[in-house]
Amino acid sequence: MNFHTRVSLPAAKRRYSHAHRFVSLGSCFADEIGKRLSRSLFGCATNPLGNLFNPLAVSEILIRATEGRDFREDEFFEHQELWRHFLVHSSLASTDRERSIQTANQAIKILGENLLSCDLLIITLGSAWVYQKKEYVGAIGHNHKLPLSSFSKRRLSPDEVSITLKRAIQLLRKENKKLEVCVTVSPVRHLRDGLHENNLSKASLLLAVDQMVETCPEIPYFPAYELLLDELRDYRYFAEDLTHPSNSATEYIWSQFRESYFDDKTTELISELDQVLAMLNHRTLHTDTSQYAAFKAALQKRIHSLANEIPQAQSLQDAFQQLP
């Protein structure tokens, strides 16, 4: 008897290894994927300017980074003693305007450099709801706790999402011809918008991605949304807030991503790396025993083996040196 629906995984156009570089951009779920790529010692730039949930903000950041356009001084505003920008997360804001501008421009430069050199760009769309401000013409990625009465809110149509994203991706691929793109819809539920409104938003995103895949088959869709909502399909796979995936759910989605996008040897290396990281994080009460000495010898041997396969594995040796 089958108790759940299996989601079929797309066949990636290319299989990736530790020799490739990645950029993970978009909602907080993009952070989760980027975190796991970095943990597995892949070169990955993850949301250098902070999370971006709606496609207009993601597209504008992609275009600005590709064109190498700095943020201008007149784009920043002061609120609650910090100088902010509507496309930059408040964690990068400062009480000093020049420092805020400098930090934002450094982040957009880092993103641009990584976009022009990376092999796979992972875009995670969170919401089709966008906020607009009468006197501001650009996309808004962050409200920065300004009064909601100063914004108007609307839901993007699938056509708007598809056209805007395709324009940004096509511009980027003119500059980085080796670049592949993977688009996914975040399984995180935006319940502050309302449950029905969240479902409409996700529907717009899913329809938009379907249009993109149909007209641009070189831009595949990875079904993170369906893996949680259709395959796992249980509240035990959500965190306590009932909006974000639990750690076990995110790990499962990550395992499916690995199966789709990495070659067999790389998948084996990731599994070995996970075991080595668990050993490095293991703490014992008695470090003066022969058993612990044997444990360290075995661990060092495995680290040396990984270092021969993964250039970034030096960090494992550094962690090993910190062991008692």
Score class of each variant (00 low, 15 high):
E197Y: 07
A168P: 00
A168K: 01
S255Q: 14
S162A: 15
E251Y: 02
S38C: 07
D274M: 12
K301F: 01
K296D: 03
D74L: 05
G50R: 06
A294I: 07
W83E: 04
D263H: 12
S315T: 11
T287L: 09
S271F: 15
Q275R: 15
A298D: 15
N105E: 04
D74P: 05
G126W: 02
S204R: 01
F238S: 00
L92K: 04
E218L: 11
M1C: 11
P245R: 13
F53S: 07
I122K: 00
S201R: 06
Y136L: 05
F262R: 07
A313L: 01
P223Q: 11
E240W: 04
S260E: 09
N51D: 05
R6Y: 13
L87T: 06
P55H: 04
L269I: 12
L207K: 03
E67N: 15
L191E: 05
L280D: 10
S8T: 11
H18E: 07
R154W: 08
P55C: 03
E272F: 03
K177S: 12
I303G: 01
G138N: 09
I303R: 10
A30H: 03
Q322M: 12
N247H: 07
P187Y: 02
P48K: 04
G50C: 03
C118G: 07
F222L: 04
E226W: 01
P187N: 06
V181W: 02
Y237E: 00
E78A: 12
V88E: 04
T289F: 08
T289I: 10
K13Q: 12
Q106E: 15
A307C: 13
F295E: 10
R189D: 02
C28H: 00
S260H: 09
A278T: 09
L121F: 02
H190T: 06
